[in-house]
Design a protein around this nucleic acid. Sequence first.
DNA 1: TTCCTTGCAAACGATTTGCATTGGA
DNA 2: TCCAATGCAAATCGTTTGCAAGGAA
Lengths: 144, 144
Amino acid sequence: MQHIEPSVEKRLAAEGIRLTGGRRQTIATLAAMGGPRTAAEIHSETGDSIPLSSLYRSLAVLTDAGILASHHGSDGVIRFELAEWFTGHHHHLVCVECGAVFDVIPTADQERRMARLVEEMAAGTGFAAAGHRFEIEGLCSKCR
Amino acid sequence: MQHIEPSVEKRLAAEGIRLTGGRRQTIATLAAMGGPRTAAEIHSETGDSIPLSSLYRSLAVLTDAGILASHHGSDGVIRFELAEWFTGHHHHLVCVECGAVFDVIPTADQERRMARLVEEMAAGTGFAAAGHRFEIEGLCSKCR
DNA sequence: TTCCTTGCAAACGATTTGCATTGGA
DNA sequence: TCCAATGCAAATCGTTTGCAAGGAA
């Protein structure tokens, strides 16, 4: 955590956003949990020390500021994780049974091939491609 | 529509599910709208002739039976479309501004390359890959 | 002081469910 | 006839917001 905090603070300060205790704790918890997590998961992981409403507000602010990334899971719940400039670009393994999400880091070669697919598929659609999301769906080790 | 109805009815009948007027209309509307749509969109498209609660129930039943597929959008709303055995396998262009979703049909070659990526990336993760989801995010022609 | 942030409670909105009624095979 | 399907109203539940109090610069 210590190593990312200065850059986080700098990034937030640039927008007049404070890195408060609760936010610090939120980021540290997410870093420790190491994957996309729901507000409820973060909340209980921190021993309910941050009220859900405040947590949601912090998550929104931090996501907005590009510190976190959010994903709407197939169970209709939002999961948050550190943005890719911390974690590196990656994709997800999504368990269709329990909704849990795990990270997979593509090799440079895989990512290059993926980017080529994006380019090819968006070509001529009138759509301005800005990014991509690649999820592998299946059963996690617990559920199969 | 007429051409898919018999197979739908057969598939439903096999599970003791009836293809009623409301469900027929729901499927026809989705087929006509031609892309992932929310319950609210379907509801208003049909002139509010089907109450939302019934519509949700039909959508759940039809999705369960494999007639429809559902997607949780980044705006937290569920969109439904005909399952891939009607539409063919495809992927989505998602507008990050308005949440609209459009279909893209990959070529056989593109799909083969995508499958290879899935295989490579899931290997050695303890995860039983069953499918994949590939979404291109960007701005639709209306929003850019 | 100024303005961002927090906490609590109340509000929201998409989706779900209980229950009595209707309707199709 | 029998059981799935429907409609209405009420309930859920994750998430958001109003507002007054707290806190950092």
